[in-house]
Design a protein around this nucleic acid. Structure first.
Lengths: 345, 345
DNA sequence: CTGTTAGCGCGTTCAG
DNA sequence: CTGAACGCGCTAACAG
């Protein structure tokens, strides 16, 4: 049908511009040592021929390798384990692109430990992806890394005022609002209290989710009253005890929104009390557990962020920064997934 | 930290196995002309060294180019226009991989026209992606294409009993169930009828969505009664008129589920009647229109399939088939997205 | 049946 | 400041 578009190569551009391959390469990669005039000629030739570099060839020829470090929490909740697995898969994808990743485990709940760990990374990596804590010391450590030439992306949890290249994760306020809307609409006008459990409000993502949830529920669903938030430290055992207390204190409880991890504990408490059908239970992160809870009807909705997407996106952003390639912002936007019993993947 | 994993090349494998590059290449690409015993030696070496081929180098060296054809509907509803745009973007991504795509416009509502169009493609393309119609003639045309050596994937709408390589799209029954659950839960026990509008039940995806929806609503929400389905031919003008009729006939209407396109018509009729707050409106496909309807509160939920993902996935599946590379099934699964006002991307 | 060799398009020396 | 030449890992012709 249409004529096959013959590939335009650097050589074509060089011929068109009347210069050599190396010169074209220099202007293309913004390397120094080219006169303005020749650079302009080359640019013109590139534009005229519509030259598009062949990434495959570039990767093959490139000698330089890149080193990335993913800083992940020591904790072992299911989402983080999944994320780590996805980072591993991403690493395999990166190897042919001459990029290699290390994984560093750190107690992300402690800003000093995290900051110290980041400081130790200085000068050792081209790129760092970190589950951030929004704390002055951590911010400073990120800024230092950037100042020393590392690219830094925040992953899952942001430090917005730092000099990180980009945040790879969901909009947690919107996620909280989404949970709030689902809670409100699922309640169907039923009057009563709604409980919130979070890991820790020191975590920016948890605080934002709570904020978004309250905004919607308190603003638009007057039949619901949010109970004071309890902190479950993302620990199943603790969330189970908290849930037991809440259930005992509020026989008319309409719903529970779990902002963080520890869904297993909540489910256990609900089932032990025989109120799993009665209480709307919305939480985060699709795991083997939450999947089962959805199917059994214990959970009513799960808000999810795709760990695989996040790991790949962080890697792509870092790599693109290193090679100077552009990114497709649309592809890097992490979506807020809603899963019901019916659309579990 | 860890030693950089040196890349293992074909040459390493050849040395380990005591053969030449070409021989390794032959067993790797399952080309004929190698004795069982040497093949086994090579396999052993590959396994021992953990060799992983470098796709970049392979693409660079490969002479062969591939031609794909995307068969899309002539109709111009927003989803299809978006899909076409995404196919265009995918084409740019394919060019460096030496694959080139043509787009063919066909009236997909007419099985004979579609089948004839497919028949004309025989022998001209390495791969074909088609919005299928589940009809004997279409099935036969697909099977013929496959018999003549083309790889065929069905896109968005499947022909399950054909010999297509794969279906790239969502599980429409599950999508209908998802809509049903949302409708039921959003209704909050309110008693009354629910209307269904589809493009045409001759389209397999529409029929399946309807089935899933009815399954859930009739089975689990006794407060709701589904009205007989009306066909709106995916046309806004027609769906508007149908909606007007439905609204007039059912002052106690609880909700409308639009299985196909034409959301604009329904929204217009709801707003004209001043019942947009009152009637739960759930439809498919996030577009500029439905996005606005969500924000305005006219629509309550939109079920979406990511057109960009579908286009890329179809391309990846076809290309992988041509080059003999494996695919990651997990990455090719098209998700059923739920969008509320709060999580619009 | 198996080995040798010439590129694919680009990055990267090293000479001019 | 610019150009020539080599090699990345692999495929595909051609010899043997």
């Amino acid at each position: 049908m249409s004529a096959i578009a013959e590939r335009i190569t650097l050589e074509d551009v060089a011929r068109e511009a009347g210069v050599s391959l190396a010169t074209v390469d220099r202007v293309l990669n913004r390397r120094p040592g080219v006169r303005e005039k020749t650079a302009a000629k080359v640019q013109a030739a590139i534009a005229k021929l519509g030259y598009r570099p062949d990434p495959a060839a570039a990767r093959l020829a490139r000698k330089e390798t890149f080193r990335f470090c993913f800083v992940l929490p020591t904790g072992t909740n299911t989402f983080m384990r999944n994320l780590e697995e996805q980072v591993g898969i991403t690493a395999e994808w990166l190897a042919p692109q001459r990029a290699f990743v290390d994984i560093l485990h750190v107690d992300v709940f402690d800003p000093n430990v995290l900051a110290t760990a980041l400081e130790r990374l200085e000068g050792r990596y081209h790129g760092v992806a970190v589950i951030a804590l929004d704390h002055p010391r951590v911010r400073a450590a990120i800024d230092d890394l950037v100042a020393r030439g590392s690219a830094v992306v925040t992953l899952v949890s942001d430090a917005p005022t730092s000099r990180r290249l980009r945040y790879v994760g969901i909009d947690n306020t919107a996620a909280g609002r989404t949970a709030g809307t689902l809670m409100g609409r699922f309640s169907g006008g039923r009057k009563g209290p709604v409980a919130l459990i979070a890991g820790s409000l020191a975590l920016r993502d948890h605080a934002e989710r709570q904020f978004g949830f309250m905004q919607v529920v308190n603003g638009e669903f007057p039949n619901l009253k949010t109970l004071p938030l309890r902190e479950g430290r993302d620990d199943s055992e603790l969330t189970r005890r908290l849930t037991e207390e809440i259930l005992a204190a509020h026989p008319d409880l309409v719903g529970i929104y779990n902002v963080g991890a520890g869904n297993r504990g909540i489910a256990a408490a609900l089932e032990a009390a025989g109120r799993e059908r009665d209480v709307i239970f919305i939480g985060h992160d699709l795991t083997d557990h939450t999947r089962r809870f959805l199917v059994r009807g214990v959970m009513d909705a799960v808000i999810n962020q795709d760990a695989g997407h996040e790991a790949r996106s962080a890697a792509r952003v870092l790599l693109a920064h290193c090679t100077g390639e552009p990114i497709l912002p649309e592809q890097e936007r992490i979506r807020i997934d809603i899963f019901l019993r019916d659309n579990i993947p």
